[in-house]
């Protein structure tokens, strides 16, 4: 940022008062940085002027229209939004779907007195319609919310699934101890009597060990 701030651009645009202009010029004599900036601004302006023969800036009406656009742009399809700086001639380049005069008539905001830019070359190189850019600005935070929401949902559901999926699907069972005891006895060569574990009636003499 230059030391002169806003006044620097005003100087280049020739909008400063006499006294202010003198002071700014005096500063420029001292400050290399500001001088460079003024020089580059002037060069830029000259190039812009060279691109646009008529050298006309967009009307204030056009600016207000730009400001109203984001809301509309957000809700319409991107292909539908080539409203702005293009004149009838440049329209096809900006958007092949954009209509002709009838379409423009339908737009109440478009001023009939709006200056016409006949030249294509006056457009900035990035010929993205202003509305689309504005729409992108409006959608970005929304998309961020969407992504965050999806991520939260995914993680939450995943975590819940992990917690809920802990147990096994298999039903709870109680081993048939009495039958198992008999099977064990039969294969190991003992009397296949029910184990006292499951048969409290069966007397087991419990005595202190040796």
């Amino acid at each position: 940022m230059s030391c002169l701030g806003e006044r620097l651009t005003a100087l280049v645009d020739g909008e400063l008062g006499h006294e202010e202009r003198d002071r700014a010029l005096a500063h420029l004599a001292r400050c290399d940085h500001c001088r460079d900036e003024v020089a580059s601004l002037r060069k830029l302006k000259g190039r812009l002027r060279g691109l646009d023969e008529t050298d006309e800036l967009p009307s204030p009406d056009f600016l207000t229209r730009l400001r109203t656009l984001p809301a509309a742009a957000g809700s319409t399809a991107p292909g539908d939004v080539p409203p702005a700086p293009a004149g009838p001639l440049s329209e096809p380049l900006a958007d092949p779907f954009a209509g002709g005069a009838a379409r423009h008539a339908a737009r109440p905001l478009r001023s009939a007195t709006r200056p016409v830019r006949p030249s294509n070359s006056a457009r900035p190189r990035d010929n993205r319609p202003a509305g689309r850019a504005a729409a992108a600005l409006g959608v970005q935070p929304r998309r961020r919310y969407l992504v965050m929401g999806a991520a939260t949902l995914f993680l939450g559901l995943g975590g819940a699934s992990y917690v809920v999926g802990g147990g096994d699907d298999a039903p709870t069972v109680t081993p048939a101890f009495d039958r198992y005891a008999v099977q064990h006895a039969l294969t190991s060569g003992d009397a296949p009597m029910t184990d006292p574990l499951t048969d409290p009636v069966n007397q087991v003499q419990v005595s202190p060990g040796p």
Binding site: A191, V206, S207, P208, G209
Partner: peptide, 19 residues
Amino acid sequence: RRFLTTWNRSRSSTSRVTV
């Protein structure tokens, strides 16, 4: 008569059966 006795450290268990 058959018997089956098992021991652990502190006690023994016996089951008896007539065959």
